[in-house]
Design a protein around this nucleic acid. Structure first.
Length: 830
RNA sequence: GCGAGAGUGGCGGAAUCGGCAGACGCCCGAGACUUAAAAUCUCGUGGACCUUUGGUCCGUGCGGGUUCAAGUCCCGCCUCUCGCACCA
């Protein structure tokens, strides 16, 4: 073996050999248990960043570890390749999106190769490839045929900068998730997926996912926002028009003193028509519509409203209540109308006080008398119903069900469940995406493209005009087609699909990536799914992870897959920080993976990023930390190099005799245990690596303490070989080279993961900590496994202990076997 | 405001079931090797105090509590990060 660790030579060498030897190719087999390890595929921005390096390093440890444990591991990689940046590059630099994207993919694929990640590249997919997006389109058609894809006109979120609409999930604090431009409402007819049909299952099945972080499940739970209550129908005085409201508190229905509509509510215009309020109402609506989504929803914003001049009738007591419109009512939630119960709702109380509306207490807390005229905070807790006609004296919890039942009997309301979740808007007015395979025919209406006509090919050479309409609109060859039903001229849909549609099923495509006949082959899906371990950033906690769950459930219902949840276990990795904040070009704190690999090699980069913090936590980048890992690999190299030749030639049988040898042997087995458990049970790669470091330190200690001629070569050989196999998932190239240096013939990555011998963990002697009154006072070397009574006797005999206990009386002695003794003593009373 | 997570040396972090706080690494210091430097190796490295070999006390955000024993469990706060936020 060479004396020097030359990563520049060995890393490319092994990458080539692994690829040539098809080391990471997999096919279905019954001879091993399967394991599907998946990292979120990247958007091909052009270069890997440290977040990718972290994501894929973590995944590679899992994949290599499972492989060594005898699993048939599927570990694929691909590209989430549709999306806006490609189109923006086209606009700003004149490069066609396809060309830009493919060249980025080529560069990033090269970078991933240089990382030495063990992918089965044979299964690579790119969502912008015809052979992929034709199936995205096919899946859209399945959604359509099952009534889950539909078109409707709605107030949608429009990002003026991206010149397209966005799904609710892609709006953060009223701004575009991508470019942070304020989103404006726009009335447009768009395609939606009926994800709300799955709201209950998406919520309930979170319980099927014990392997997901609680945090992510809570976020999805909040996002779905299920709330149970009742729909109560108020009627307008005069016209008798129905205004349903949603409430979670039907028990407070007798406390309604007014009602409020959202400014966008369809009844608003006709309510005020002809009343003295007409003008004021119109002004108010105009002003509200003008506000951005962010301003509209700001909590601090004062509640404002205006009386419409109309009155509605409370169905339970026939009371006449004024109808207002107000800025705090959202058209998107519930029915867009709420009943005002100021005594028992803080928002309503604030509103009522501002506009001098009456406050009527209908829930009386135990042992307290509320006064509607003076109360300054709404009473929202439990109590007994009062001023509530036949329900007086009913505990309010019980009242919820009883009032609801009463409404149902009288036909003025019913129990209802409402969700915050909205249907998924998937239309995008952009070019670089999968065209929605629909046709508009003047005679036949909306007609789906027949499956045999797929794919609807995204045309090349399209002009990009930033008009707010899809560039495909200006591509006559694309737009003009014939109706599949009647054969007359017809128009194609020109919007493309949200890229999250593409990424909602890619994990299925990996199981049969080359299938020409199907999106995925059922038997392959049945073999590989679920994904056993999914790894990615927490920023996808709602978006991608909920869409993918929705797709899986829909496909299950279509009979296309046999599983209802795609990802069995989820690991959300933390961010990579530099100087305490996320790496970003604007902050100028970006560390380029390519430079690190160039300087220290991929193994060092991987090792550092795994060593510096546990995966879920944010990781602070440290150049010195990288140096440290590089030093460690050099240290490992020198150690192995010092013994490699001798170990290779040595054929003596292994025998462990001296105390020092037994210590080294024991350290080896402790290390195997620690590394195995740290990877398998806790994903704590940082402590796994530190365990290997300790083993290496132990080897050096042995080398230093035992004279060269007396060193146990078979022992050292065994220890080093095992150490190299433990290192293999973390630093695959150097491990391979060292393995070969130690005489390994096959790849170290085909080795079986080492097991430990529980007997080797046993030690003849233990260091017993002696505490007196909970403070460490002494240590004793004792034979392991002594009975507690014997330990107690020995401790109490010990000179030092006797001295320290002088004048005191032993009250109690606690013995933790082979670990610790605590002598509880107090001053003797004379 | 609601929900979740976190807070441990100069730094990243460890302590897995209540049992030696600070593993491992970085930084820093001392020494060895060297003409010299780099590299490497060895030793030291939480704080305060003491008469030394050695020992004492303090110490895991703050204040209480449970316990023979608390970074870990309980109660009450503080700070930070993330998510949601007029959701009727």
């Amino acid at each position: 073996m060479e004396a020097r660790y030359n990563f520049k030579e060995i890393e490319p060498k092994w990458q080539r050999r692994w690829e040539a030897g098809e080391l990471y190719r997999v096919t279905e087999t019954d001879s091993k248990p399967k394991y599907y390890c998946l990292e979120m595929f990247p958007y091909p921005s052009g270069n890997l960043h440290m977040g990718h390096v972290r994501n894929y390093s973590i995944g590679d440890v899992v994949a290599r570890f499972k492989r060594m444990q005898g699993y048939n591991v599927l570990h694929p990689m691909g590209w989430d390749a549709f999306g806006l940046p490609a189109e923006n590059a086209a606009i700003h630099r004149g490069i066609p999106p396809a060309e830009w994207t493919w060249s980025n993919i080529n560069n990033m694929r090269r970078q991933l190769h240089a990382m030495g990640i063990s992918y089965d590249w044979e299964r690579e997919v790119a969502t912008c490839h015809l052979n992929y997006y034709r199936w995205t389109q096919w899946l859209f058609l399945q959604m359509y045929h099952h009534g889950l894809a539909y078109r409707k006109k709605a107030a949608v979120n429009w990002c003026p900068s991206c010149a397209t609409v966005l799904a609710n999930e892609q709006v953060v604090d009223g701004a575009c998730e991508r470019c942070h431009t304020d989103v404006v409402p726009k009335d447009l007819e768009q395609w939606f997926f009926r994800i709300t049909d799955y709201a209950d299952r998406l919520l309930a099945d979170l319980q099927l996912l014990p392997g997901w972080p609680e945090k992510v499940k809570i976020m999805q739970d909040n996002w779905i926002g299920k709330s149970s209550g009742a729909e109560v129908v108020f009627r307008l005085e005069g016209s008798g028009a129905e205004i349903p409201v949603f409430t979670t508190r039907p028990d407070t229905l007798y406390g309604v003193t007014y009602m409020v509509l959202a400014p966008e509510h369809p009844l608003v215009a006709q309510l005020a028509a002809g009343t003295p309020c007409e003008e004021a109402v119109a002004d108010f609506v105009r002003a509200a519509r003008h506000l951005s989504a962010l301003d509209r929803t700001a909590t601090e914003k004062e509640k404002e409203g205006v009386f419409t001049g109309a009155y509605a009738i409370n169905p339970v007591n026939s009371e006449r209540v004024p109808v207002w419109i107000a800025n705090y009512v959202l058209m998107e939630y519930g029915t867009g109308a709420v009943m005002g119960v100021p005594a028992h709702d803080q928002r309503d109380l604030e509103f009522a006080r501002k506009y001098n509306l009456p406050v009527r207490v209908v829930i009386q807390p135990p042992g307290e008398e509320l006064d509607g005229n003076t109360m300054s905070a709404a009473y929202v807790n439990d109590g007994v119903m009062v001023n509530s006609g036949p329900f007086n004296g009913v505990p309010n919890r019980e009242g919820i069900a009883r009032v609801t039942a009463h409404l149902e009997v009288s036909g003025t309301g019913k129990a209802r469940v409402t969700y915050r979740l909205r249907d998924w808007l998937i239309s995008r007015q952009r070019y670089w995406g999968a065209p929605i395979p629909m046709i508009y025919c003047d005679r036949c209406g909306i007609v789906p493209v027949p499956e045999e006509d797929l794919p609807v090919i995204l045309p090349e050479g399209v002009e990009f005009k930033p008009t707010g309409e899809s560039p495909l609109t200006y591509c006559p060859d694309f737009v003009h087609t014939t109706c599949p039903c009647c054969g007359n001229p017809a128009r194609r849909e020109t919007d493309t699909m949200d890229t999250f549609v593409c990424s909602s099923w890619y994990f299925l495509r990996y199981t049969s990536p080359h299938s020409q006949e199907q999106a995925f082959e059922r038997d392959k899906v049945d073999y590989w799914m679920n994904v056993d371990q999914y790894i990615g950033g927490v920023e996808h906690a709602i978006l991608h992870l909920m869409y993918a769950r929705f797709f899986t459930k829909a496909l299950y219902d279509f009979g296309l897959v046999g599983i209802e949840e795609p990802f069995q276990n989820l690991l959300t990795q933390g961010m990579v920080l530099k100087e305490g904040s996320k790496m970003s070009k604007s902050k100028g704190n970006v560390v380029s993976p390519e430079e690190i690999i160039e300087r220290y090699g991929a193994d060092t980069a991987r090792l550092f990023i795994l060593f510096a913090a546990p995966p879920e936590r944010d990781l602070e980048w440290s150049d010195q930390g990288v140096e440290g890992c590089y030093r460690f690999l050099n240290r490992v190299w020198r150690l192995v190099a010092a013994y490699a030749d001798a170990v290779r030639r040595d054929s003596a049988p292994l025998a462990v005799t001296t105390h020092t040898e037994r210590e080294l042997w024991r350290l080896l087995h402790i290390t195997i245990k620690r590394v195995t458990e740290d990877i398998e049970q806790r994903f704590n790669f940082n402590t796994a690596i530190s365990a290997i470091m300790e083993l290496v330190n132990g080897c050096y200690r042995y080398q230093d303490t035992v004279p060269a001629g007396e060193q146990n070569l078979p022992l050292m050989g065994t220890v080093l070989k095992k150490m190299v196999t433990l290192l293999a998932p973390f630093a695959p190239h150097i491990a391979e080279e060292l393995w070969q240096g130690l005489g390994g013939r096959e790849s170290v990555h085909l080795e079986t993961w080492p097991g430990y011998d529980p007997q080797a963990l046993a030690t003849p002697e233990v260091t017993l900590v002696v505490q007196i009154n909970g403070k460490v006072r002494d240590r004793m070397q004792l034979p392991a496994g002594l009975p507690p009574a014997e330990v107690e006797r020995l401790v109490l005999q010990r000179d030092k202990v006797v001295d320290m206990l002088a004048g005191q009386q032993v009250v109690k002695v606690i013995v933790v076997p082979d670990k610790l003794v605590n002598v509880v003593a107090r001053k003797k009373c004379i």
